[in-house]
Design a protein around this nucleic acid. Structure first.
Length: 264
DNA sequence: CACGCTGGACGTATTACCTCA
DNA sequence: ATTGAGGTAATACGTCCAGCG
C-alpha cells in the first residue's frame, strides 16, 4: 500500500474511550496475548488517542475476514472437552507426516546437521500466499492438508505462516510509521501557519483604532465550519470561547480564507 | 569477493486449556 | 466441587544465517 492509496481516505483523529472492537476472528478465538499496540483500532477500552484511516481495507492482511471461515480455534472450540485430544491426535499425524516427508530432512545426505535452507518453489509460495489470504492462521487440519498438498512438513508450513504474519506486521508497521510521520509534518505546518495568522491578526487589531474595527455583521465566515454565533459557546473579551470543545469562534477575516484551516 | 537483503528456521516467552492429585 | 501443579499446544517475537542478486 503506497501513499497514493491513502489519498482517497480520510483521516480519523480521536481522543477518548474506545469500546472493545476486536475483529470477529479474535472474539471467536480464545483470548490470547494483548493485541499489538499498532493494531487499528485499539482493542482495549482504555483512554486512547487514535490516528488512523477511515477505510476498512487499510489492513487487509492483518485483519482478514475470518468470520466466514474457521479460525484456528473456533473450529475446535465447539468440541471444548475434546479439544486437546483432537489436537494431539493431529500432532501424532504430523509426526508421521514428518517421518514420511522425503523432501527435506533434518540431516543432510552426508549426515551433517548444518541448517539447510529450503527454497520454496513458485507453486508452493503461491499456494501458501493464497492460503494466507484466506486465513492468516491455520488450524491443525488446515496445516496438515496444506503440508500434504505442498509436499512439505507441517512444521515448515507452520514456520512459513509464523514468518509471514510477523513480516506482514512489520511491513504494516513501517507503512503506519511513515504515514504518521507525514501526518505529523502536515499538522506541524498547519500549526505554524495558524500561529503566524494569529500573530498577524493580533498586530492588525493593535494597529486599528477601536472605532474602525469591523462590525460583526460584516465579518467573513468560514464557509465550511460556520461556527460563528452558532451553538451555546460564548466568547469572552479575549476572543477565547468558553466550553470544552468550542473553537474558531472568532471570525477570521484575514486573507479571506484562501487557505481555510484544516480544523474547519 | 564483499555486501545487503530476503526468508526459512529456531529458541524463548506467554497464554490457554486440560488432566490429575 | 474446588484448587493448584504439571503438561501440552499455539502463537508472537527476536534472532540466526543460508542463499541470492
Amino acid at each position: 500500500m503506497g501513499f497514493d492509496d491513502l489519498s482517497n481516505t480520510s483521516l480519523l483523529l480521536g481522543l477518548g474511550l474506545t469500546l472493545p472492537s476486536n475483529p470477529p476472528h479474535l472474539i471467536s478465538q480464545k483470548p490470547k496475548k494483548p493485541l499489538d499496540l499498532l493494531c487499528f483500532p485499539p482493542p482495549e477500552s482504555e483512554p486512547s488517542l487514535t490516528l488512523g484511516l477511515s477505510t476498512v481495507d487499510t489492513y487487509p492482511s492483518e485483519t482478514p475476514d475470518l468470520s466466514r471461515q474457521p479460525s484456528p480455534h473456533s473450529a475446535i472450540s465447539s468440541f471444548s472437552g475434546s479439544r486437546v485430544k483432537r489436537e494431539r491426535d493431529v500432532s501424532g499425524e504430523e509426526i508421521e507426516e514428518e517421518k514420511a516427508s522425503s523432501r527435506v530432512s533434518d540431516e543432510d545426505e552426508d549426515g551433517s546437521n548444518a541448517r539447510k535452507k529450503l527454497r520454496l518453489t513458485k507453486e508452493q509460495s503461491a499456494l501458501l500466499e493464497e492460503s494466507f489470504k484466506l486465513h492468516s492462521t491455520l488450524n491443525p487440519k488446515q496445516k496438515q492438508a496444506l503440508a500434504r498438498e505442498l509436499n512439505l512438513r507441517p512444521r515448515q508450513v507452520e514456520v512459513w505462516f509464523q514468518n509471514r504474519r510477523a513480516r506482514t506486521k512489520l511491513k504494516q508497521t513501517e507503512v503506519d510509521c511513515e504515514f504518521l510521520k507525514r501526518c505529523c509534518e502536515t499538522l506541524t505546518d498547519e500549526n505554524r501557519r495558524l500561529q503566524k495568522e494569529l500573530q498577524e491578526l493580533k498586530a492588525l487589531k493593535l494597529a486599528q483604532p477601536l472605532f474602525m474595527q469591523m462590525p460583526a455583521a460584516t465579518l467573513t465566515m468560514c464557509p465550511s465550519c460556520e461556527r460563528i454565533g452558532g451553538g451555546a459557546a460564548t466568547v469572552n473579551g479575549d476572543g477565547n470561547s468558553k466550553g470544552p470543545f468550542s473553537m474558531a469562534t472568532k471570525p477570521r477575516f484575514y486573507k479571506a480564507f484562501t487557505k481555510p484551516s484544516a480544523a474547519c
